[in-house]
Each structure stands twice: as structure tokens, then as C-alpha cells.
């Protein structure tokens, strides 16, 4: 029945947290359906990490509730709740006295999984994350690079195959090249397919790349909750508009697809250069590939023209 919305996997209502007189989180509500990726976005100190920690009870709200699969999280012991939620933090926080394999195995062991199954799972995850177990399983965290540590952190969060994964700036501490690589691995990781993900970041590009929906926060309050396209093209207020101002063009080129610009392309003469692209392709990708083959490709002008009109139509 397509009409009935799927039962939300996570439902947060009216979350509020005060530290002293200051409300660091003020009446935040959202819902996630299964398999959806929500990005909590905002400037430093906006309360996004606090909201994330309320989901696994590392922070208890002063007001509001969190339900996971319809059950109030406060009715569960915090440890048990957390064992069912993957968790990755920016500082990684690998246990420095545990080997890579032991770090990955922490949660499955807490859950009492069979040793053989744990070993197989660890092996599989490390392989998938480009950390060949033969070489890396026995190493200690301080023997790894920052990017490798973050991969182990990711493997650790996924080891027990939790349906929900919480990530707090998981790529924040890495240099841009490493970061792009891990992000790509992350996006393409089969283990993450179908998982419900909440990810905290202050990086707009990252949010647009990974999010199904974005929750933009400022000073503890929700500024806008919606798809990347909605936030970009139909900002709810000045804050949202200003927040994307610096990267607006790049985001627009990445967000609009050929499907969006197609109605505004000239039909005659036709542009055979564009025919090889799928309609899902972002305008940016199409431009990059066109100019890579021929810096002065004839299709660029009409494409930009159509992009301009599509933008006007979408923002109306």
C-alpha cells in the first residue's frame, strides 16, 4: 500500500538540552525511515553532535523523546541500546591496547557471537575496507595511519551488522585526498546498503554527497529539514540561504541533473554529445566529461543556458 508511510525507524520529538542557561538543543524533531540517510548539518556548536548522542543515550535530553523502532530508548538499558547501533566518531577512539582485529570484534564479543563467526566477519570487513587482515589484523592502532584508523573505526561500527549506524564527523580529521577516498568507499560499501544512517558533519559538500535528507541546525534550532535540493533551491530562511552561499554554484551544478535541464535544451539542432549520458547524471559531471574530451565542446553553451533556466524553474 503505497499510501501508508513506512513506520519510522527513528523518531525524535521535541529534543531539548540545556547546559546552564544555554539551550544547546532546542525542540528538535525528525523521523527516519528504514534505509534512509539523514545528515545533521550546521556550523560548529550548533548542537548537531548533541542531537546524535541523544539517539544512543550518551546524552540524555532534558525534554523530548527518542523512539527507535517504536520503542522509547529510555526503556532499554543504555549498553544494550548502543550494542544495536553502530557508532563512529571523529577521533576514532580505537582502544589503543587492542589489536585491529580485537577492536573490530568488541561489539560481537559483547553480544556473545561465536568466535569463528566473529573471526570470519572481521576478516571480511577488513578486506572490504582495504586493510588486508594478514597484514593489519594483528597491528595496534598507533601503527596505522589516520585514514586506516578511521577505516578500522568504521569496520568496528559495522561488525555486528547493526540496522542503524550513527556517525559523528567520521571523515573530519582526515586530509582531503584520504577523505574523498574513504567517503567513496563508505558510499559504495555493501554493508551500508539498506542501513539507516545518521551522519553529523559541518562539510556541505559531504552532506550533499551522502544525504537523502539534511537537517540544518543553527544555535540548537532546526533551520530546515529536507532533501539537499530543497535546502538549496527553496531555502526556508536567510540562514539557510547564507549557509550555502559560498558554494552555491558548485552545489547547484551537482544537484541538478540532465533530467532537470532537458526541458530547456534546444531541440534543434540536437546535441548528440549529451546523448551518451544517463538522465541521472549531475550537470557538473556532464560538463566535466564534455570538457575533458574537448575543452571548447559545442554542447557546453547550450547546456549552461538550459541549466540557468532549469534553476529558475526549480527555485520558483
Amino acid at each position: 500500500m503505497p499510501d501508508t508511510p513506512a513506520l519510522p525507524v527513528i523518531r525524535a520529538r521535541g529534543l531539548t538540552k540545556r547546559y546552564g542557561p544555554q539551550r544547546v538543543v532546542d525542540d528538535v524533531s525528525f523521523e527516519l525511515t528504514a534505509g534512509e540517510t539523514l545528515v545533521l548539518l550546521g556550523p560548529s556548536g550548533c548542537g548537531k553532535t548533541t542531537v546524535l548522542k541523544m539517539l544512543n543515550r550518551l546524552v540524555e535530553p532534558d525534554a523530548g523523546t527518542v523512539e527507535i523502532n517504536g520503542q522509547d530508548v529510555r526503556r532499554q538499558r543504555p549498553e544494550e541500546l548502543r550494542r544495536g547501533l553502530g557508532y563512529v566518531i571523529q577521533q576514532v577512539g580505537l582502544l589503543p591496547h587492542y589489536s585491529v582485529a580485537d577492536n573490530v570484534a568488541v561489539v560481537p564479543r559483547l553480544l556473545g557471537h561465536a568466535p569463528a563467526a566473529i573471526e570470519a566477519r572481521t576478516h571480511e570487513l577488513l578486506t572490504r575496507l582495504h586493510l588486508p587482515p594478514d597484514e593489519y589484523a594483528g597491528r595496534l592502532p598507533h601503527e596505522l595511519s589516520g585514514g586506516q584508523q578511521q577505516r578500522v573505526g568504521l569496520a568496528r561500527a559495522l561488525a555486528a551488522d547493526p540496522p542503524i549506524v550513527l556517525l559523528d564527523e567520521p571523515f573530519g580529521a582526515l586530509d582531503p585526498v584520504v577523505r574523498a577516498g574513504i567517503r567513496r568507499d563508505f558510499r559504495e560499501l555493501p554493508e551500508l546498503r539498506g542501513k539507516t544512517v545518521v551522519l553529523v558533519t559541518h562539510d556541505v559538500a559531504e552532506a550533499f554527497e551522502l544525504a537523502d535528507r539534511i537537517l540544518l541546525l543553527d544555535a540548537g534550532r532546526v533551520q530546515q529539514l529536507g532533501t539537499p535540493r530543497e535546502l538549496l533551491l527553496k531555502p526556508a530562511n536567510d540562514f539557510v540561504r547564507r549557509f550555502f552561499a559560498a558554494e552555491r554554484l558548485a552545489l547547484q551544478l551537482r544537484t541538478l541533473t540532465l533530467a532537470d535541464v532537458q526541458p530547456f535544451l534546444p531541440t534543434a539542432p540536437p546535441l548528440p554529445a549529451l546523448a551518451r549520458f544517463h538522465l541521472d547524471t549531475p550537470v557538473q559531471t556532464a560538463l566535466e566529461q564534455l570538457t575533458a574530451a574537448d575543452p571548447v565542446a559545442a554542447a557546453v553553451g547550450p547546456l549552461m543556458h538550459a541549466f540557468h533556466h532549469a534553476l529558475q524553474a526549480a527555485s520558483a
Binding site: 549498553e79 548502543r82 557508532y87 582502544l95
Partner: peptide, 18 residues
């Protein structure tokens, strides 16, 4: 002890005693 390590450990579901 690094607070990040402790937070990660708690976040993974270790009890206070663990």
C-alpha cells in the same frame, strides 16, 4: 585516558564497569 577512547567504548555498548 583519552576521552575519545572512553566515549567510543561507551558508544559501542560497554557498561561502566567494563
Amino acid at each position: 585516558v583519552s576521552p575519545a577512547v572512553v566515549e567510543a567504548a561507551r558508544g559501542l555498548g560497554l557498561t561502566d564497569g567494563q
